[in-house]
Each structure stands twice: as C-alpha cells, then as structure tokens.
C-alpha cells in the first residue's frame, strides 16, 4: 500500500533520514519506534508532503507522492494525526470534526462519520460545543484522532499519540488504534512508547539516527536483546 524507497532527507545541511526503506501493507498496523530525533516524525512529514525529500521515493498504491501537494495526499486516503494534536483551538469539537470532512469525498459521509466517532469517543459527544483549545490533553488527542477519521482514510499516520497522556489514557488510545485497524484502516504508528506499540503492531521498524537498524514482527522485537536494552531498560 505504502512504499518508502531509499528516502534521504535533510533540513538544510543536516541530514536526518538516510536511505530509509519502509513498507506498509493494507490492513496492517506498522510501527516505527526510536528515540527522540531518530527521524520518525520527519518520515511522516515526508509522507504527508509537508516537507520535500531530496532523493528516493514514496509511493501510495503505486502513485508517486512526489507529484502531489499535502491536501491532495489527504484526498488520496492518507491522513496524519500530527504530534502535539494540532487541533483548531478556537473551534468547537463539532467544528473541528467538520473540518475533518472538508475534502469532497468525505462530505457525503459527514453525518455518518460523526456518529461513528462519537460512538468511539463518547466523551467528545459530551463536549460537542466546547472549544478545542480548552480541553485536556487526552480529550484533544481523542479529537485529533476523530478528526483524522472524518477524512475517511485508507491509511492513518499517528505521530506520538500517547505523548504526555496519563497511563489509563495511554491504554485507551492504544485500544482505539486496534479498534480503528479492525474497522479496516491501515495504521502507521510512530511512537516512543516502545513497549505498547510493539505489543499491538503486526510489524515494526526500529529507527536510530535516521536509519532503519532493525525490522521484524512486533512481538519478536519485544524479545530482542538490543531493543530490550536500548528502549525497554531491561
């Protein structure tokens, strides 16, 4: 479904991604784990075309993403739930959700999708009229994911969805990610919470300073000595 091939990207003189190869197949949960500054978010920013890579390629269902603008990528079925949630602070919950279905293909399903995300996140329904900026971190994360789902994505890119959340909320978010996947959406998850994300992922990539150093089945990597030592403190 998504194929990243020999991707190289630098911010000015500083190269942050080196020859990165990554594949996501339809129906999978794939996770990219790694420490701060490993290039995880930058990879997602490249997929969403917010930044432009120097060499290599990214294709989605065999379409070369280099030809598309960020808003066109969303129309193709890739949505990103960015790090730090980035919800519209001066808009209500419902207005934020409506913005999620701005693209033409998602508009006819707007009401249906609003019902769907309200079932998934009953808390958002209670807060329907509240301004996005006044909500707690966990609620904002729910809203960000719900807003992403409003675009009817085929592939959802999640950037650090558990960052800064209380343990109970972290568990809830990871359950939701599995639920989204069961509903037929392919997931590419970027996380620093290595244990939780390897637990739910079908496959995983370990990134260190912009390079893939390890790849494999999620559960297997959990038992890998290097992963244990580097990320799990065992």
């Amino acid at each position: 479904m998504l194929k990243v091939d020999k991707l190289n990207f630098s911010y000015g003189d500083m190269q942050v991604i080196w020859d990165l190869d990554l594949v996501v197949n339809a129906g999978e949960i794939v996770t990219v784990v790694g420490a701060n500054g490993a290039g995880k978010s930058t990879t997602l920013r490249n997929i969403s075309r917010l930044v432009k890579w120097q060499s290599g390629s990214i294709s989605f269902n065999d379409a070369d993403l280099a030809k598309f603008e960020p808003h066109e990528v969303v129309e193709m079925g890739i949505v990103q739930v960015p790090e730090g949630r980035k919800i519209f602070p001066e808009m209500t919950v419902i207005e934020n959700l409506r913005m999620g279905s701005f693209i033409k293909s998602a508009r006819p399903k707007r009401d249906e999708n609003i019902d769907r995300v309200f079932t998934m996140f009953p808390r958002l329904k209670e807060r329907e009229k509240q301004l996005g900026g006044t909500m707690s971190g966990g609620e904002q994360q729910m809203l960000a994911i719900a807003r992403g789902l409003m675009t009817n994505p085929k592939l959802i890119l999640l950037d650090e969805p558990s960052l800064g959340l209380a343990p109970l909320m972290v568990k809830f978010i990871f359950d939701i990610i599995q639920e989204i996947n069961r509903q037929g959406v392919t997931v590419l998850l970027v996380e620093q919470n290595v244990y939780q994300s390897l637990r739910i992922a079908h496959r995983a990539y370990v990134l260190e300073t912009g390079r893939v150093v390890m790849t494999g089945v999620g559960e297997e990597l959990l038992n890998n000595d290097h992963v244990k030592k580097a990320f799990l403190g065992m």
Partner: peptide
Amino acid sequence: QAIRATAQDREAAQLMG
C-alpha cells in the same frame, strides 16, 4: 470554516486536506 482553520493552524489545515 476552512479559512478560519487555516488562520488557526496552517499546517493542521493542510493535513485535513
């Protein structure tokens, strides 16, 4: 609403298509 969204967070607006 899209104009207001762009004003509030340009990048998030792009990510919403």
